[in-house]
Design a protein around this nucleic acid. Structure first.
Lengths: 255, 255
DNA sequence: TAGTGGTCTAGACCACCTC
DNA sequence: AGGTGGTCTAGACCACTAC
């Protein structure tokens, strides 16, 4: 006998049909009532099954339209080269990378003075709750929300690099601006994790159910002390990161 | 007026109470029927709200027991040092790392000859579908499923390092074994992404709804050619990766 | 206006856990 | 035995999108 609950059978059957392209990316699924007929189930049961697929990230739903198979197109970010002064580039690293991929970057910007959150204070080696400069970006690619980025700078650094605390973009990129003021970042400590978005993040990034976020936390160090802590929140369905370690001459196409 | 649907109000209220520790990690929530009374809603509506929190990864449910606030304990993996021959360690990198953290590692193991999947073949620079050796691990930490790891080696490599194709662990670690046979990996290309688990992955890693996986794909290169491609699937709630780039002397506690 | 998904209810029965 | 969550139904009404 079939031990699976009916809504799982519905989900499994549809998942299989999505996998073997009976329903391809971007295509619409039959309506709930049609599926109810097909599976001899109530509309609520079919909905439970569809809900599973939504939370697996396989389909999306929109009122009045129906269910659609999700299509993916990922953007690859090279974290080893990103912001690396050895790889010459002009302007800020994000715009450069996106433009190089033939896409159109766009960002909104905000600067605040904020007490450093505990996690950030620890990495910046400052007292928890001490004032830090927060530079916050909300980034889009071709008008699709892509990521948010929050960078905290310790208070002592602002005395030496005052433009950090002023609103408005720093055209040459903050890494270069800091380097020009004698604050050179010689090492990075990167931490990467994943989780489901908070409702706030889901709103900002226009994430539907079933899509996790990819969290990238980078602490930039001078020879003496940590200089900044950047927390980037990516839409997990649209982004992938990579690192190059050691000698990759054999891989070809090195820069 | 309140425009939010009732099940969202339920979810928001409970989420707030979890955030401010009215219900702390590991604690039980009131039962569905109690919540139904409290919110003047039907049991089904309350369930919809609880379901939201489950798929956000905030709570888990178990039949006969109730809903419990999830507690997190993450394991940190240093991907820059992992498998790096410059950092001396004995045995395989995973056991070393886990033991160093005071936890108990355990793994099951499997070796197969398999046609290389397209994605892997591309990275190994072999014909898609050509035979590769697949060494597969299912890893536990303190008996909790932690990650699965699949490493593909191109066919040509097995002639020079025959133990790769034999079942059973390679005690000194495959990286060392290969190096001893003149196949030294001098560079790594790492790719990191996230998504919701497939049902198969959810089963293997005992992942409940609302927990994404963290995917780590490492291609190891010799001076001449790619030598292997490792795909690691982590439980996203239990793992975090980090990379050290450049000079981190200022961070202290190096090595 | 017709069809789609979104919300909500009331009630039934089952499966699992604890006592 | 009694409480918990898990599954399922039938039906109502609302909100959005298309034509």
């Amino acid at each position: 006998m079939n031990r699976q609950p009916k809504y799982r059978q519905v989900a499994d059957a549809l998942r299989r049909e999505i996998d073997d392209s009976t329903y391809g990316p971007g295509e619409r699924l039959p309506s709930e009532s049609e599926l109810a007929k097909r599976f001899t189930a109530s509309r609520n049961t079919v909905r439970a099954g569809l809900n599973l697929l939504v939370s697996e990230g396989l389909i999306t739903s929109s009122q009045g339209l129906g269910y659609e198979v999700r299509s993916h197109e990922v953007f690859e970010l090279n974290a080893s080269r990103f912001e690396n002064l050895n790889f010459p580039q002009s302007g800020d690293a994000y715009s450069t990378d996106v433009t190089a991929a033939g896409r159109r970057p766009h960002q909104t910007f905000r600067v605040e003075m904020q007490p450093a959150p505990a996690e950030v204070a620890e990495r910046l080696k400052v007292e928890p709750g001490s004032t830090a400069v927060l530079r916050h970006c909300h980034r889009y690619v071709d008008d699709v929300p892509w990521s948010t980025q929050a960078t905290y700078y310790p208070g002592w650094l602002v005395d030496r690099a005052p433009r950090l605390a002023q609103p408005g973009d720093i055209e040459e990129g903050t890494t270069r601006y800091l380097a020009a003021h004698g604050i050179e970042q010689v090492g990075y400590f990167d931490e990467i994790s994943t989780r489901m978005p908070t409702p706030e993040e889901a709103r900002l990034l226009e994430i539907g159910a079933g899509v996790p976020v990819l969290l990238w936390q980078r602490t930039g160090h001078t020879a003496d002390a940590p200089a900044r802590c950047t927390i980037t929140t990516f839409r997990g369905d649209l982004n992938r990161m990579n690192y190059e370690i050691g000698d990759l001459a054999a891989r070809g196409e090195s820069l």
